[in-house]
């Protein structure tokens, strides 16, 4: 679940690791937006070159990024096939009922594939080089303006970071309870679906009860340590905007300009 939720942080000292999480978060989102500006070979090649540069700068082997694509491969293939079979325009190669394959369709298919891969590489880059807690801190500062319209940004960020901290604890507990049930002769993963679901129920109830108790204990402990809302709180962890962060922003502005210039 750890991996499913957040990707995985890889410790490192690279340039990308040391960028301010606020900038990294914002630029990652921004990247996803400008990927949609690409509409020809030149623009895709430019974006791919950028991403490869970032991957190189992060000192993380390409394999980790390719692994990031794997869980989504079916979704990607499905979208690509839709593009190939249902695009119109250009020279028709093949035609059957509602399906047509045209040269335009094939090109669109390749473009959609590239778009997915670019976006996945970029978000993988973010999660590989930024700790979950930095992400949650970064989100908090980025969303701070929303406190003006009474969105409890601070509380949400705190809950997020507590939830992140408890993911491994809850997973451990699941394993423990599963083993305890196995020891009592429960067989997980045997029989038909209904049977399997039945076998999981005795697992879910203790888990649920325990997370209930944990939440209560945790709230008491937080209150005992003087927690009374986000107001007037200071921050232990520092977020520091350095020269490199500004350079990254300038790079992205230049990139946007180049894209607008190159696209048809």
């Amino acid at each position: 679940m750890d991996k499913m939720l957040l990707g995985r942080y890889i410790n490192g000292e690279s340039l990308i690791h040391h960028l301010d999480p606020r900038g990294k978060l914002f630029l990652s989102f921004y990247f996803i937006v400008i990927v949609f500006l690409c509409n020809n070979w030149e623009t895709y090649v430019l974006m791919a070159a950028m991403v490869m540069l970032f991957v190189k700068l992060s000192d993380i082997s390409l394999g980790f990024f390719i692994k990031g694509v794997r869980p989504l491969i079916w979704l990607i293939l499905f979208t690509v096939l839709l593009q190939i079979f249902f695009s119109s325009g250009g020279q028709v190669f093949w035609h059957f009922g509602p399906f047509t394959i045209t040269d335009q369709g094939l090109i669109n298919g390749v473009f959609v594939f590239c778009r997915f891969v670019l976006i996945i590489f970029m978000s993988t880059l973010l999660t590989l080089t930024t700790t979950p807690i930095e992400i949650s801190d970064g989100l908090e500062s980025l969303l701070k303006p929303l406190t003006k319209i009474k969105v409890p940004v601070y509380e949400i960020a705190l809950m997020l970071s507590i939830a992140l901290r408890f993911v491994p604890t809850l997973m451990d507990e699941t394993t423990k309870i599963m083993n305890a049930q196995r020891a009592r002769g429960v067989n997980f993963g045997e029989g038909n679906l209904l049977k399997q679901i039945k076998s999981v129920i005795p697992l879910l109830i203790p888990l649920f009860v325990s997370s209930f108790n944990r939440a209560e204990d945790l709230a008491t402990a937080m209150e005992a340590r003087g927690y009374h809302g986000g107001e007037g709180r200071t921050k232990y962890r520092e977020q520091e905007w350095r020269k490199n962060d500004t350079l990254a922003v300038i790079l992205f502005i230049a990139l946007t300009g180049a894209l607008i210039f190159l696209r048809n």
Partner: peptide
Amino acid sequence: FVYAFNILNLYFFMFRIM
């Protein structure tokens, strides 16, 4: 299924603390 439940449980957990 257990993972999905765990994620739900986590949301519930956050809600409860709040």
